[in-house]
Design a protein around this nucleic acid. Structure first.
Lengths: 252, 252
DNA sequence: CGTGGACTTGATTTGAGTCAAAGGAGGTGG
DNA sequence: CCACCTCCTTTGACTCAAATCAAGTCCACG
């Protein structure tokens, strides 16, 4: 537990050519960089780190040497306290930058594990630091993304602090749906790649409670669920149960 | 509810002279600014905005025109969803910068209300943006503080997701104790300025449950409590109940 | 001095946790 | 390729921690 397991670096390349739909480049899009700025960023990206299912990207406390954007796959973020209690604080998918919260400290503040075989594009800490110095739009984007992460955490605190089990599960499904939709997939038919236990941990529930909520939604024709395969059959009512999806925004 | 209530600006001054122990200057200390950089920051601070108990600093959604550091007093941060459910996400005290999470968006993402008559020192959004551009150490400090805020939220998620009522309340008391201690006050004898209801909301508990936990700790000689006046009598055992204070760090 | 909010305490209810059993999926090695 | 094993999931019965409901006290403040 105390030794740090570095990401399995599989001959990353600097050229963009070998990285179609590069996640890092996609992440930068909302920053509206100029052609010149874009070029500066692209030159620093280390493309296509591969990581296997259940492999650890890093532990909390590990030196932060790189920041990663997920290209494909799924990553689970968690923290563990001295009792050994673990709390999953989020699931990240393609297009998301992970590790920002440790950027200022120079070390990671959470554990991150791949839920599936995943591909990541990274950038060295020092390169990124320099780029945010030189590119105001990128710096701004980092402030915006970090702020959004704080706001997201606050929404989960609301969920954990005051919502009932079925409301939480409904919210979870709507968030996965929103994520799938953002990636261009169906928002009513998708796969939840995490286990019931992980979902429960994230939502502050036991796995049996998550399973029961799924079964209940299934029996009342809100969803059709079969293992990890979910089809939402009544999006409107699911939103009513979740209560506030409209104003809440994505939580995952 | 929809109109934005601007902070009651009481003839703020630009000179440092009228602001002994200026909170903003204190907040900058860990950034280790050079004398010249310090001067740049000091020139932009608008000192001593006053705000009364229960007055609102701003609503979520309001344009972010200034960032504030608390000089004295206490501020409650919360979010509200469309159901009207509110979640208190933190209590801030002297020396803390509030509003960072909205910095990148240019608008506030949470509501902030004074728990007591408070004094704040502010800096205009555009001035701060400019300063973080020109002063690497300040920029770095912002990254660090925002990251710390994300990590703090994650710890609360752990608390809300897996801790029992008395563990939560013990954690809360240790955090208030830590805050008091950080300000140079006694860490065993302090005042909790928030109501039982606010404490409960923050901890995901009902006010009766908070009251019962306090009573129980009182009856078992862990604390001596009288209304808002708290004396910790057995810090060691309180930490044992909270479980992980050592590794958790401040949560408030 | 009276009124409303804050707090405490007790009795009761209930939503989610715990415990237990059994079916099912996926991965591994012979 | 099949058998086995492990982990995941579902469902039922029971328990329990915290919520709810209710009553009464204590202040602070107009």
């Amino acid at each position: 537990m105390s030794t740090v397991c570095p990401v399995n670096v599989s001959r990353p390349t600097r050229s963009t050519d070998g990285c179609p739909n590069c996640g890092f480049i996609a992440w930068c899009l909302p920053a509206n960089l100029t052609a010149h700025e874009s070029k500066q960023v692209h030159e620093r990206i280390r493309h296509r780190h591969l990581i296997k299912r259940n492999e650890r990207l890093y532990y909390a406390g590990a030196a932060l040497t790189s920041l990663f954007v997920i290209n494909s796959g799924f990553v689970r973020t968690s923290i563990t306290n001295s009792d050994g209690r673990e709390q999953i604080t989020g699931f990240s998918m393609a297009g998301e930058l992970v590790g920002m919260e440790g950027f200022g400290m120079g070390k990671h503040l959470c554990d991150r594990v791949a839920l599936e075989d995943s591909s990541l594009c990274g950038i060295a800490y020092t390169d990124f630091e320099q780029l945010t110095r030189d590119i105001p739009a990128l710096r701004h984007h980092v402030y915006r993304e970090m702020g959004a992460e704080i706001a997201r955490s606050h929404r989960i605190m609301l969920l954990l602090g005051s919502m009932h089990a079925e409301e939480r599960v409904a919210m979870f499904l709507l968030n996965v749906s929103g994520q799938a939709s953002a990636l261009g997939y169906s928002k009513t038919h998708f796969r939840v790649s995490m286990t019931r236990k992980d979902i429960g941990n994230y939502l502050g529930l036991k796995l049996e409670t998550v399973s029961r909520a799924f079964s209940h939604f299934n029996n009342t024709q809100l969803i059709a669920i079969n293992g990890k395969d979910v089809e939402i059959e009544n999006l409107v009512q699911l939103r009513q149960i979740a209560g506030d999806y409209g104003t809440c925004g994505p939580c995952l």
